[in-house]
Design a protein around this nucleic acid. Structure first.
Lengths: 224, 224
DNA sequence: TCTTGTCGAATTGTTGAACGATCCTTAGAT
DNA sequence: ATCTAAGGATCGTTCAACAATTCGACAAGA
């Protein structure tokens, strides 16, 4: 009976606006809508069969998640991240993930197992040359890292952060060069966590993120 | 010409829905709407002279900021924080503020001066027995701390976090006992930052937040 | 040629009304 | 007292309409 308590959050979740937001979020994250593109109320509203008002509620939601850019009287656009935005996102990652790995001493075996799963998933995808999937597994890896903080709000914050980063990933032509170097590093970082070497993990993570940011910024130029 | 670029962000800012959200946010934060209270679309809409649709857009905004709780088919309520929520907020504070003070070595004199201002403001308010204002100054102190991270997104996250905490503060009868102990501690922490003693500051902050959380949770019981 | 003013089409911002769906209350039945 | 079945209030969503704003095109002037 107490187990049902956990599913309660999913119960209330269903208004048309929220479902529309879910759909659009998916489309944006998977890159179907490219950054800078304008999302017409008329076009999308009729395509999805919802009214303008409902659609606008969905737009607001995504705007607050920073996936859409709402410009007054001009409409909503898929967010275009500047280099400064990317740098900011990585500053944030250092804080959220850094704090997480520092707490690895208190990490539950369950939490570590979850991280391990994402590492394996990345390795499998890499050996199959599915670099898109490697990126997804990598995101889940870092999401699982942040979960070590045991804070639902930080989890949510990280979720949004990674969604934003997806906007950048999709703007790049070569996903392999972006994700490949980190498959092995994920495995290594996991090892440090399992050995409860918090400070080493934190140090390693710093370098990890520095490199990732550099790699990303090198290949990225805002599409305007 | 490049100077104007900076003001551009202020240009787009004004739709009725956003202004309505600003007003409601203020009223919630200052405790005029108490946690648990239901906000009627009809009543508030006509009181503010905006249509239901516009008002609902504002509600969505505040719901996403966790100040309002949107229950399907039942309306929006001012958020009631559980003890678990408070604990989560403090976990988050430890992460955001902890990372901030650890970077005090790189802090600009300007940033430290800003922190100092909030300390003095708290001291002034305290000596005048204006404990409400002490709370405000204290919030600004911690906001200024987080600013050491130099991340706009973390600043924004912290802003929301403190707004949520206000919901709890207002639910308490005795603001003095809640804020008084920390006026002096703020001054002390500032000293550590100015001396660039990052690790000491981090350690001190941990204790600071532990005490604050305990104090808050002791006196707080969700009003249902 | 380049700038500036003006017009019109297209789109968004906001409103008001309407109707079905859902929740809460209350009165009635068992 | 507990359960059940209206009834009313409120929300969810849609639709149509109009005002406000933007943008592009085109013409007038330097």
């Amino acid at each position: 009976m107490a187990a049902l308590e956990h599913d309660r959050s999913r119960l209330g979740r269903s208004s048309t606006a929220e479902r529309v937001a879910d759909i659009l979020r998916e489309r944006i994250i998977e890159g179907l809508f490219v950054p800078g593109e304008r999302l017409s109320e008329e076009a999308i509203g009729s395509a999805l069969g919802v009214s303008r008002n409902t659609l606008r509620e969905a737009f607001r939601l995504l705007g607050h998640e920073r996936l859409l850019d709402h410009k007054l009287n001009r409409g909503v656009f898929v967010r275009v991240l500047s280099a400064a935005d990317v740098a900011d996102l990585y500053r944030m990652r250092r804080v959220l993930e850094g704090a997480a790995v520092r707490r690895c001493a208190e990490a539950s075996p369950e939490a570590l197992r979850l991280i391990g799963e994402t590492v394996e998933e990345a390795e499998r995808s890499a050996s199959d040359d599915r670099w898109q999937d490697v990126g997804t597994a990598n995101s889940r890896f870092h999401q699982a890292l942040v979960a070590l903080n045991q804070s639902p709000r930080l989890d949510e914050t990280m979720r949004q952060l990674l969604a934003e980063l997806r906007l950048v990933f999709h703007a790049m032509r070569n996903p392999r060069s972006l994700h490949e170097p980190f498959v092995e590093r994920n495995r290594l970082l996991l090892g440090l966590l399992e050995a409860r070497r918090a400070e080493d993990a934190a140090t390693y993570l710093e370098i990890y993120l520095d490199d990732a940011e550099r790699l990303l910024l090198q290949a990225y130029e805002p599409a305007g």
